[in-house]
């Protein structure tokens, strides 16, 4: 099972790196969002520094959503899902592998590049570090909550907008605690660790629920 898992992760990573893969696309979109928002708000660095963590987190949510609709769609279309259904490997392993690969190509790079984009928003080094840390811990929740939506819309063919509608209310807690933790690190009345640990717990819960719910959704639609 471990070997199947690793094989599936590697396959997805390779696909993401190829032509037509969406590996770098999420990152470019993330950069676009961070670059465009100051045009709406004005170049006031104090304001941008204050809302910077929230802005980076919100952009991360949107950038994660963008790549999600193809998560299972290609596998449903080319029959890979049916192959896995008829093999010994549980569908949950496929979902876990897909989620991990998606996180490695979207969530993790977003978190690692967030400090760089933080420069544009005049974040302090402490705030940059906090945003990066919360994104590393929080983006798995976004990926695996999104995986449920991706599984539900996999066989629809036109799931992009519907996926966002289904999944965004469920991402509210992650967003709240991600931004709270990032803001707490740069001062404020609450300790950094409280929201940070809750964020970590949310991620773990989302991974478990996401894997089983997405697998159930795929089985229902297959």
């Amino acid at each position: 099972m471990t070997r199947a898992f690793l094989a599936l992760v590697l396959r997805d990573l390779r696909l993401a790196a190829r032509v037509g893969g969406s590996g770098a696309m999420g990152l470019v979109f993330f950069l676009m969002l961070v670059a465009v928002v100051p045009f709406a708000l004005g170049p006031d660095l104090n304001l941008l520094a204050r809302i910077g963590p929230a802005l980076l987190w919100f952009s991360a949510v949107l950038a994660t959503l963008i790549g999600l609709d193809r998560l299972f769609q290609t596998d449903v279309e080319d029959g890979a899902i049916d192959l896995i259904l008829s093999s010994d490997t549980p569908l949950e392993v496929l979902v876990a592998a897909k989620g991990v690969a998606h996180w490695l190509t979207t969530g993790l790079p977003l978190a690692l590049l967030a400090p760089l984009f933080g420069l544009l928003l005049a974040l302090t080094p402490g705030a940059m570090l906090a945003v990066a840390a919360t994104l590393v811990v929080g983006t798995p929740a976004l990926t695996f909550i999104g995986a449920v939506g991706a599984a539900l819309t996999a066989s629809l063919g036109r799931g992009g907008l519907l996926l966002a509608i289904l999944v965004m209310p469920l991402m509210v807690p992650t967003l709240i605690f991600g931004v709270s933790a990032a803001n707490a690190a740069t001062g404020g009345t609450i300790a950094f660790l409280t929201p940070f640990l809750i964020l970590a717990a949310l991620s773990l819960v989302a991974i478990v629920i996401g894997i089983f719910a997405a697998a159930a959704a795929l089985r229902q639609s297959a």
């Binding site: 449920v148 289904l166 719910a213």
Partner: peptide
């Protein structure tokens, strides 16, 4: 069945 999964999540 799809809605049921979503509702329970």
């Amino acid at each position: 069945r799809a809605v049921a999964v979503l509702t329970l999540v």
